[in-house]
Structures are given as C-alpha cells and as structure tokens.
C-alpha cells in the first residue's frame, strides 16, 4: 500500500504547478519512501532518507524558492518525446527485471556470494554489531571516503557559487533578523539546542550498535546551529560559528578521514587498514571506524552550515516576469 501512496505522491508532483506544493509533496514522498525502506529492513537508509529527503532537501528547496519565486510557467507544448524516452528507459529496465530472482527470495545470487561473509564475520572482525556500519566504514570504507569527498566538493561548490560570510543587513523578518523578539521562542531554543547537540553525539556513537552514524550526527549538529540562526538571527549565528570556521570544518573532516587512512599506511598496513591501528586488531578496527565517523560528522556538519549560510546570505531578486 505504501508503494501505491509513493506513486500517487510522485504523480501529484508532476501535476502540481505551484512549486511550494511541489516541495511539500516531495517531502511527503520522501517520508513515505523512508517508511517503505524501513519495511524492507533498511533502517539506516530509511533514517538517512528521512533526514536528507524530507529534511535537508525540503529546506534547501524552500530556501531556493524564497530566492527565485514559486510559480511554474505552463509548458508551451505537449511533450511527447520526453514521455517516450522515459517509457523506453523503464521498458528496458522492466525487460531486465523480469529475469531477476523473485523479490525476497534468499537463494538469489545477491544473497550468496559477498554478502553472507559480512553477516558472518563482521562482528568478530570489527566488533560492530551493526553490519551496515561495519561495511560502510571498514570493508567499503574507501567508498565512504569518496562519499565524504563528494559532500566536501558540493560544499566548496556552493561556497564558490554563492559565497558565505557576506554581511546581511539586519531585517525585521527573514534570515537576517531572526525572531528574537519572541521571548517564548528564545527560551525554548535555549532549552532545545543543547539537547539537539547531545542527541547528535548520541547518534554519532550509537551508530555502531543501531542505526545512525557520522552522517546523521553531522546533520543534527548543523540543524542545531541553523535553529539558533533562525531564532537569533544569522548575524549572531555567524558570530558564534564564523564562516571561516565553517570552511575549515568542511575541509577538516575529509582531511581527518583521509589521514586515518594514511596512518594505516604508515603503521605498515595498506591504505585505510584499521587492523594496524592498535595491538589488538579488533580494537584497531574500532578505533579506525570511530575516527572516520568523526571525520564524516565534521565535514557533513560543516557543509550543511556552509550551504545554509550561503543561501541565507543571498538577497531576493525581483521577478522579471511580474
């Protein structure tokens, strides 16, 4: 049933002409997707999809709409060709999937070759019961280094395109001024933000045992500061966490990750070899995973903040059409 809802929300996105509606619908879409992913046992993925798809993406899209306007122009012509291209693509994929093993069948090739070994030996070899974390940070830790680098790249891309740290004139409303005249908000914020940071730490360290890890923790950490900025104003937030510091965080996380890898190399192992990080290989694994997750968290938090500063620092331009 969830799948049907998923499809319905996607179709609603096609139909909607108001871009705010599109953004809200895409948030809903992501939540349904996250729920569906939980049903499919992918709890880590679901958690990330919820925080990324429904959280970050929605905020980013809304921020963009604030700067660019929210009505989509009516298409000038009936687009037949795009439909054909899309259908042809799906057609090839349907052709392909007709031959794959039946859904949920444990005898499929995918469940036979590489994966069983992760499930059998990961706990023993790395001491981490969450196999997803073990594979992510250790077995395929190099992919995750690449992934962190992708976020880093996006971060410096956004800084290059939009710039951070330009002074915004204080305004009564909007991202510059915040809402500090509301006493209740201020008090609640002061109460909530420490908990948000605490929660981030919990997610960071709990990643070994349950769903969570550096990426989610970084997002929550950044969300804490963004919340602060929304209530107390961008200028105050930038005093608390200056743009230059954000830039350094963006770079620092990737550097930490890559250096953990290099450390393995210097201690006589291959690149990203955590076994050599301690006398006891399992401890070494633990230590390696801890530090690379810390690296991920730092870069993710930095990039999220950089993106927030970059978008919030832009001024709204008048629409040429109206």
């Amino acid at each position: 049933m969830l799948l049907v809802l998923l499809l319905a929300s996607a179709l609603a996105i096609v139909r909607a002409r108001n871009l705010f509606a599109v953004v809200v619908l895409s948030g809903i879409y992501s939540f349904i997707m996250a729920t569906q992913l939980t049903v499919l046992d992918a709890v880590d993925v679901a958690m990330t999809e919820a925080s990324v798809g429904a959280g970050i993406s929605t905020v980013l899209l809304l921020g963009t709409l604030y700067l660019t306007g929210s009505e989509e122009a009516a298409p000038g012509h009936r687009p037949i060709l795009p439909l054909l291209v899309a259908l042809a693509t799906a057609g090839i994929l349907i052709y392909g999937t007709l031959g794959i093993p039946v859904f949920g069948d444990p005898s499929g090739a995918i469940h036979q070759h590489v994966a069983p070994r992760y499930l059998q030996e990961a706990v023993e070899a790395t001491g981490i019961p969450n196999v997803v974390t073990a594979v992510l940070a250790s077995y395929r830790g190099y992919d995750t280094l690449g992934e962190t680098t992708v976020i880093f790249t996006a971060g410096i891309g956004v800084i290059l395109l939009l710039g951070i740290g330009r002074r915004v004139r204080e305004r009564a409303q909007g991202p510059g001024g915040g809402m500090q005249e509301y006493l209740v908000l201020r008090v609640i914020a002061k109460l909530l933000i420490p908990f948000a940071l605490l929660f981030a730490l919990y997610v960071q360290f709990h990643g070994d045992f349950g769903p969570g890890g550096g990426f989610q923790a970084g997002v929550i950490l950044a969300a804490g500061v963004i919340f602060y900025a929304v209530i107390f104003g961008l200028t105050k937030a930038q005093k608390l966490v200056p743009p230059r510091l954000v830039e350094i965080l963006v770079a620092l996380g990737v550097a930490v990750y890559a250096l953990v890898g290099a450390l393995g190399l210097m201690l006589g192992g291959n690149y990203l070899d955590y076994f050599v990080l301690d006398h006891d290989p399992v401890h070494g694994q633990h230590r390696g995973v801890f530090w690379v997750e810390a690296g991920v968290c730092i870069t993710v938090a930095g990039v999220m903040l950089a993106i927030f500063y970059a978008f919030a620092g832009r001024r709204r331009r008048p629409d040429s059409r109206s």
Partner: peptide, 22 residues
C-alpha cells in the same frame, strides 16, 4: 607498494589542505 592508493589519495588530501590554508 602503495603507489596505486597514493595516486588518488594525495590529490584528494591536497584539496582540503588548500581550503584550510586559503
């Protein structure tokens, strides 16, 4: 022995270094 890894990791590590030095 480590040249294949260094081939990619060195420029990858140099990028954040550029950002930090400014």
């Amino acid at each position: 022995h480590h040249l294949p890894a260094l081939q990619v990791v060195v420029p990858l590590l140099a990028a954040p270094l550029c950002v930090m030095l400014r």
